[in-house]
């Protein structure tokens, strides 16, 4: 099972999370990270497991780098049946729209037939902490569960 991280970022924090996940798991599993801006529909293949890392911008909006990806999904309406993914959202609970940025991507993937698995990871920046460590914990659980699965024949 190949793991494909796609990250949506505004200030670089989701990007450093993606960097860390690649550093942590590279060698143990096949894993790579792509900015959502650069994701193509060919990469959304059921043979890969998608790790979605996405921040929130402003009042519950998507970060700049997620916007072209959302637009691509909206325009092309690809059939994502069989694609599985997990989500880790970044946000700040001093906003009423806490962590909503990633949800814009989650709802699109679900509506196109993909299946979300595992815990919906979230990090709250309101206390000034970094998301990197809690994202690593989240990813360890997801990857451990998915990587041991017997490949479908």
């Amino acid at each position: 099972m190949k793991f494909q991280i796609i990250y949506g970022t505004e200030s670089g924090n989701a990007e450093t999370v993606a960097d860390d996940l690649v550093d942590e798991f590279d060698g143990d599993v096949e894993i790579e990270a792509t900015d959502m801006t650069d994701v193509t529909l060919e990469e959304l293949d059921p043979s890969t497991f998608l790790l979605v890392i996405c921040s929130t911008h402003g009042d519950g909006g998507m970060p700049a780098s997620a916007v072209p990806f959302a637009q691509l999904l909206d325009d092309e309406q690809p059939d994502l049946t069989g694609l599985r993914y997990a989500v880790f959202g970044l946000g700040d609970s001093s906003y009423e729209t806490y962590s909503r940025g990633s949800e814009h991507i989650d709802v699109r993937l679900q509506n196109l037939g993909a299946t979300r698995v595992g815990d919906y990871g979230r990090h709250d920046a309101a206390d000034g902490s970094l998301p990197n460590e809690s994202a690593l914990e989240w990813a360890h659980e997801i990857i451990a569960a998915v990587a041991v699965e017997v490949p479908a024949r």
């Binding site: 970022t9 505004e10 200030s11 670089g12 990007e15 450093t16 960097d19 920046a125 970094l130 990197n132």
Partner: peptide, 8 residues
């Protein structure tokens, strides 16, 4: 972006 990320 990475230059200005919270961690950096």
């Amino acid at each position: 972006r990475r230059t200005f990320s919270a961690r950096a």
